[in-house]
Design a protein around this nucleic acid. Structure first.
Lengths: 201, 201
DNA sequence: TGCTTTGTGTAACGGTCATTCCAGTATATA
DNA sequence: TATATACTGGAATGACCGTTACACAAAGCA
């Protein structure tokens, strides 16, 4: 039918992600995106419609390839008590892996929440939805590890883990060590909620 | 010696704060600031040097008039056990006060943290310093309420309260109710750390 | 009252931004 | 092979950005 696309879409999304993650949406220019992806403006606009279209595609890709896979760690059928600690250490590892670069990135989605999300209903709902997924994932892990907890207790504890996760990811942009320590404190607190004898690790 | 300034500096800082808080630094234009403050460009540049100079002044003013005063709530000599819950409810009240409006959600400083690129070392240090103040303030309150805790225990618990505070403030921009519930969960968890009989409230 | 100094208003500047246009290129199908 | 179709390169566009230049206005001091 026609000419074939020369660039690899998922590679381009990964390259663009890096720039948006470092600089944020506003501070990223089309020229930055051209340089990072190797694409020309034409290809960017043909493929994604606009800067915002590319950003939305990047966010979607980020959720699919990074956030969601990590959420599944919370659900560990064989060893229910280990879900939360596995999740938290996975997060710590990911944060440390970006530590060698000059910028600490935290979480692309949460950085976005602090920026444009307030004035952008669609983005707000997206981020809120993810927060619910995270919190409920933690709640499921808590429930599986100790079915005797009341619903209210599970919810309050899930909020603590999810809230600390977000606090740590935000702080990672400013002080990586403190962020890692916060995740560690979250893990230790979660251990205390496990019934004796089922402690992870 | 010369002509007197016609505008009230602290009013101007408050007006500018509202815009920066709502839209973030990048997305705020000089025209926005003119409209919000009622000042002309000349006065802005004469008084603050640049857009960034005004922003820095706004941040300084924000810390002096909002953040620091609230931090003092953590230190309650008469009733040490009440410091943390007083602080958290003060925060909740402040968040709820913005419930009707869509703007000014969360914390100006933490929103800034998510937005800064790696090159702004000064801003990074400022935000990190505040985080330390918050965490150590909580640690002081915990220690005062129960001097029998080990240092490691105090630090870990302080990280939990401070981390949850940041997580809630970030989330406030996206889901206010969830943010308030997170603060509540933080308060309840802190209650459990108090020695029996000294429970606040 | 004149003079100096500082604050304000207006207009313009160069630069950068996201976006568009158009000509040219490659390819799958007919 | 011919052709319709989709992709790409490069230049141009108009809008908006932060900042500056300059003329004028007000107020303290002589």
């Amino acid at each position: 039918m026609a000419r074939t696309q020369e660039f690899d879409t998922s590679k381009a999304l990964g390259d663009a992600r890096r720039v948006f993650w470092d600089k944020g949406f506003d501070a990223t220019s089309i020229a930055d995106l051209e340089a990072a992806t190797g694409l020309g403006r034409s290809s960017i606009y043909h493929g994604f419609g606009s800067k915002r279209g590319l950003f939305d595609a990047v966010i979607q890709d980020y959720m699919d390839t990074i956030l969601r896979p990590r959420l599944t760690l919370l659900h560990n059928p064989a060893h229910p008590a280990e879900g939360i600690s596995t999740y938290l250490t996975s997060l710590s590892d990911a944060l440390e892996k970006t530590a060698d670069q000059t910028t600490n990135r935290g979480c692309l989605l949460l950085n976005t929440a602090a920026g444009i999300a307030g004035n952008d209903e669609a983005l707000r709902l997206l981020i809120d939805g993810y927060q619910v997924e995270l919190r409920d994932g933690v709640a499921g892990a808590l429930r599986a590890a100790d079915p005797t907890q009341t619903d209210a207790m599970v919810l309050a504890r899930a909020r603590i883990v999810a809230g600390l996760t977000m606090g740590a990811l935000l702080m990672a942009r400013v002080n990586l060590g403190e962020a890692l320590s916060t995740l560690e404190a979250a893990g230790e607190q979660a251990q205390l909620w496990l019934p004796a004898g089922s402690q992870a690790r």
